[in-house]
Design a binder for these strands. Structure first.
Length: 517
RNA sequence: GGCCAGUUCGUCUAACGGUUAGGACUCAAGAUUUUCAUUCUUGCAAUAGGGGUUCGAUUCCCCUACUGGCUACCA
């Protein structure tokens, strides 16, 4: 695949938040563009006025931006309306609702050239046609056998057509699928696919309802006008590829037809079907990159809000349906760009595995510097109204980071560094608080009191020297100390904990335990 | 129902005619340990079924089964 002006586009429809499958499609387009020094265009396909959802476009832009998938051209994060062509945005506007005259021109051209026709069927007409076919046990297809006996510009007089067009608005333009032909297509991922035109129907190109083109028309026209070289999209589009081929042909654009690559779908983690909105709530993982509050007030969780790093999210998405052919699994965006190739995209659907998603984040968390982790941790501490120093916070972070997959687990793992235990779990007491322990803890207190400086090596040395002399078992002493100081059977080594909280706090906690237990 | 695509461990995947079918996640066991983790080691676990082609099929072809997508004046 040589680099002759690669131009790809991601063309979502603002009918709701972009889900992770959509993000992956955008990502693959982005990687492909960057890999080939090409251009990544973001185009908004808002020709469905019925399903338009306010806020969805903004959401899509924000989500891509969070992932670091930033368009070179088209609708940008800073809200460039791009309604006029500029050098950076030569094909503006990039929002299909603003391009109606363009599509109209091409739709009319198809009608004039006999590749499409006006159809005047009412919804009722269509319904009875469908029923008629079903009654005969046939599959309903709006094709040549139907168009020959319905009201349309193919066999109505031009006066009659003109009259009808004038009189009411309820007409559509349908594509006239050529009869008895095999359309042979190439897909970069699937190879050769061929379909007979007998199985195709005369798709609506121009809708009566909102006076806008359908996806098929607008998409083909825009891809051509915007000089798109490769169309990388979800597998759900494979069935319309023949129509799209035919459309390129009807326009006389077959020489400029882009190359197509249909990506495997993202499937539900458990049962059947492609990943959908509902799965997240049902199974306890996000399906959206960002949290989404629907206009009806329904809240869906997002990867960002769940504590995922965008790098981890992008990384896990990249490995769903693609692999580098090596055993490397952790990739920065730059490395992905370097390694990416459509040749290595899988053909079968990828079932999403939330467990592995967590693992990815864990990997990124571990590779974060303590200093950066502290920045994420401080807000959590402020939320709990904990006053601390950056130095202490950083020490804590370094001690708990490899026990967590997400920063938001830090508090659970480290609260005892900041808040002393008040009461003690009876079960734990029973296990670690034997009759001889109070005496031991008094001695331990003295040993620790005499420990200077109060740092990890010194604490370890003092404690071990004492335990050796008194012939005590390490576990017995340490577990008792843990009960006094942590109050729970978890956490880093005791010397580490004591060194962080300091001598005074350590002694106070032992005193408190001695009093309470 | 029709059309199209797909099918390797539970999951993501590698092996593009010749491997003891590899890795990762999960799970299990062991080691380390001061609790809990981490870490390390080991283990469990797959070519959907049936026919071909071939000296040899995970790999190529056909059939069946299953899975998924599409089948709107939605994208």
């Amino acid at each position: 695949m040589q680099t002759e002006n690669v131009r790809v586009r991601f063309a979502p429809s603002p009918t709701g938040p972009l889900h992770m499958g959509g993000v992956r499609t955008a990502l693959f387009n982005y990687l492909f563009a960057k890999k080939h020094n090409g251009t990544f265009v973001l185009r908004i396909e808002d020709t469905d006025t019925q399903r338009y959802v306010p806020g969805a476009e903004q959401y899509i832009i924000e989500a891509l931006n969070w992932c670091g998938i930033v368009p070179d051209e088209g609708v940008l994060p800073n809200g460039t309306p791009a309604s006029e062509a500029t050098s950076r945005h030569p094909y503006a506007p990039y929002r299909q609702s603003e391009r109606k005259p363009v599509y109209r021109k091409y739709a009319l051209q198809l009608v004039e050239q006999g590749h499409a026709y006006y159809a005047f069927d009412t919804p009722g007409d269509l319904e009875s046609l469908r029923k008629e076919a079903e009654d005969k046990g046939e599959t309903f297809l709006y094709n040549h056998s139907v168009r020959d006996r319905t009201l349309n510009s193919l066999h109505l007089s031009s006066d009659e057509v003109a009259r009808r067009l004038e009189e009411n608005n309820s007409w559509v333009i349908r594509f006239k699928v050529p009869e008895d032909r095999t359309v042979t297509m190439q897909d970069l991922i699937r190879g050769t696919v061929s379909v007979h035109t007998e199985t195709l129907d005369d798709k609506v190109l121009w809708k009566a309802q909102d006076g806008l083109p359908t996806y098929h028309l607008a998409n083909i026209v825009d891809d051509r006008l915007m000089q798109i070289s490769h169309v990388i999209r979800g597998e759900e589009w494979l069935p319309s590829l023949p129509l799209h081929y035919l459309l390129y042909e009807a326009f006389g654009w077959q020489e400029h037809r882009p190359l197509f690559a249909h990506l495997p779908l993202l499937l539900k983690p458990d049962g059947k079907g492609k990943l959908s909105k509902r799965d997240g709530d049902r199974m306890g993982f996000p399906v959206f990159p960002l949290q989404w509050l629907s206009p009806t007030g329904e809240l869906s969780r997002g990867y960002r809000e769940d504590g995922y790093y965008p790098e981890a999210f992008v990384n896990l998405l990249a490995l769903l349906g693609w692999n580098p052919g090596t055993e490397q699994e952790i990739f920065s965006m730059e490395e992905l760009i370097e390694a990416f190739s459509l040749d290595r995209v899988t053909r079968s659907g990828a079932r999403f595995n939330p467990e592995k998603a967590k693992w990815f984040n864990q990997q990124y968390l571990r590779n974060r510097s303590d200093a950066r982790l502290v920045q994420d941790f401080i807000p959590l501490l402020l939320e709990k109204e904990i006053k601390t120093t950056p130095l202490k916070a950083e020490k804590v972070v370094s001690l708990v980071k490899n026990r967590a997959s997400f920063v938001n687990e830090f508090w659970e793992l480290s609260h005892f560094f900041f808040i002393p235990p008040v009461s003690f779990d009876p079960g734990l007491q029973k296990k670690y608080w034997k009759p001889e322990i109070p005496g031991l803890m008094k001695q331990a207190r003295e040993v620790l009191d005499g420990c200077v400086p109060f740092d990890v090596p010194s604490i370890d040395k003092s404690l071990h020297r004492w335990m050796e002399k008194a012939q005590l078992k390490t576990g017995q002493v340490m577990n008792a100390l843990r009960l006094c100081i942590v109050g729970e059977p978890q956490g880093p080594g005791m010397a580490d904990i004591m060194a962080v909280i300091g001598k005074q706090e350590t002694l106070e906690r032992i005193d408190h335990a001695l009093k309470t237990l």
